[in-house]
Design a protein around this nucleic acid. Structure first.
Lengths: 142, 142
DNA sequence: CATCCACCTTGCCATCATGGCAAGGTCAAG
DNA sequence: CTTGACCTTGCCATGATGGCAAGGTGGATG
């Protein structure tokens, strides 16, 4: 399989396949006489694994660790679980931060009548002198 | 005030103040004879506004729009509200995506006993052949 | 055989907000 | 006059991804 077919089969773009190779995530693909990268079923499987891990928000270095664990028969599952739970915590933290921002902004927005008149609690909230703002505290919470 | 003082007073780093100036978010600061940027209370206020908006996750172009509305007496508050609600929606969407990832991963992790044994449902879930995976569907949901 | 299109290669640039570093100028205090 | 803290500009890096450009390949068709 050429890189385009591998991309279609794995759901990873050709560009990213080359990138992962350059980053050392996957081992350099074999080459045809003309220099085209060649992929087999096992490579597709690996690429698919990477795609899944990306979908779960893992960063490339962590995916490298996951791949190493995956290919290491006999790894203790505790290591994998620890990695996964760290990622869960990171995702939750990011989500909570976004929620806090969203809540703050929503709180400002509900007090804005949103019509032709110029007075606007949203802008007032953003412009407030520092100190007496419940909103910013929430946003800076994490 | 020099840029360092302005940074301390506004909560925006000196580097970012220069960056915002280069991006046209704020109007070029006046300069001292030696070429040092000079800031006054109004500038600090503006920088503070930007800082708040950043804390609420607004991107720089949107902050530009917010600043324009802020400085435009007579703007209809509806415009501001629309901008704010769009941002709320964007934040909620991102948060939901992160939650979906986190949920999927947590679901995989609870089935992993996390001990010395090598079998691991987390890796199995990532390696699953495409099609029969409840996990990935959730992650791709947004 | 010549042509053409679709594909491959490498490499550079861009994103977005932010930090870091370097080389050089400025200012105030000792 | 020296020293240290500050300022200036400019370049590079982050992380994952896309885009573009210039040039080589491969197979199908005229």
């Amino acid at each position: 399989m050429n890189i385009g077919e591998a991309a279609a089969a794995s759901g990873v773009s050709a560009k990213m396949i080359r990138h992962y190779e350059a980053r050392g995530l996957i081992r350099p693909a074999g080459r045809s006489a003309a220099g085209y990268r060649q992929y087999g079923a096992a490579d597709i499987h690996t690429l698919h694994f990477i795609r899944r891990a990306r979908d779960l928000g893992f960063a490339l270095p962590e995916i490298g660790r996951l791949l190493a664990l995956w290919q290491d028969r006999g790894r203790p599952s505790a290591e994998v679980k620890a990695l996964a739970l760290r990622q869960v915590a990171a995702l939750d933290a990011k989500a909570a931060a976004l929620r806090a921002m969203s809540d703050t902004l929503r709180r400002l927005a509900v007090h804005c009548h949103g019509d032709d008149r110029p007075d606007c609690p949203i802008l007032d909230g953003l412009a407030d002198s520092p100190g007496q703002d419940a909103g910013c505290a929430a946003a800076q919470m994490p």
